[in-house]
Nucleic acid binder design. Sequence first.
DNA 1: TCACAAGGTCTATAAAAGAGACCGACAGGC
DNA 2: GCCTGTCGGTCTCTTTTATAGACCTTGTGA
Lengths: 132, 132
Amino acid sequence: MTDGPDLAERFAAWQDLGFDPHHCPVRDVLSHLGDKWTTLIIASLAGGTRRFGAIHRVIPDISKRMLTQTLRDLERDGLVTRRVFPTSPPSVEYSLTPLGGSLLRPLAGLVDWAERNHPAIRAARTRFQAEP
Amino acid sequence: MTDGPDLAERFAAWQDLGFDPHHCPVRDVLSHLGDKWTTLIIASLAGGTRRFGAIHRVIPDISKRMLTQTLRDLERDGLVTRRVFPTSPPSVEYSLTPLGGSLLRPLAGLVDWAERNHPAIRAARTRFQAEP
DNA sequence: TCACAAGGTCTATAAAAGAGACCGACAGGC
DNA sequence: GCCTGTCGGTCTCTTTTATAGACCTTGTGA
């Protein structure tokens, strides 16, 4: 219940402050989370350290290119660490940083909502499509 | 604290169920939320009903095309209702449905995280850029 | 008569995502 | 020795999305 001010108040406050869209933290952060693969990758690392190939096996329909890129972005933002072992073939381990780990809780709230309301959303879509 | 199972367990459970990527509710739902404008629009409707132009004024750097499209998507998913008044010039009101409203709480959690950790993320970026 | 408002649509262009071939170094089978 | 496979990528090409911004319609008031 102590979620702090709700979105409406918060949004109003931003407006009042002459809010610069390009420095909005929410955009900055959420635009990454929406990057289609980000949430899944974070979820796959929630259980602990994983290697590149392991993540790929767990999310089979991502291309290596996008997997690399998304992991780099997460590393860049300090949510994920990357450790290279100079073996051959190379071995690379990824894991969540404390910062990345701290994202799990709010993310779980959203995932929870998604699972709970998915049926309702699907129903809404069917209804919408059936309209004239 | 009663967030239900955490992401790691949940993810593992999906895996075990022979998890079909294309029917994953999380992808289905979160891919929209990440659509860059979705969260902002929902936030702007958190305070109550707003007209098209009002939303546009509050999020000045969205194109009308994307605003229309994002609102349609939200309407399609049952998160937003659209009411047209056949005046002239036309007048259209948007508001959150109960389903849309129920998203505010988990979303606020994420926004909260984003605000709180934005400095850390920015610092991480600077650090990353400074690397060899 | 003219410009302007609201809530869009349409088009042309730029950015991003996806598929999938390729790479480099080694290990094992034959 | 030679061929094959593994790991963690990168590179190129094509398709998909997003963006900017011009245009449309129907009235109103100056």
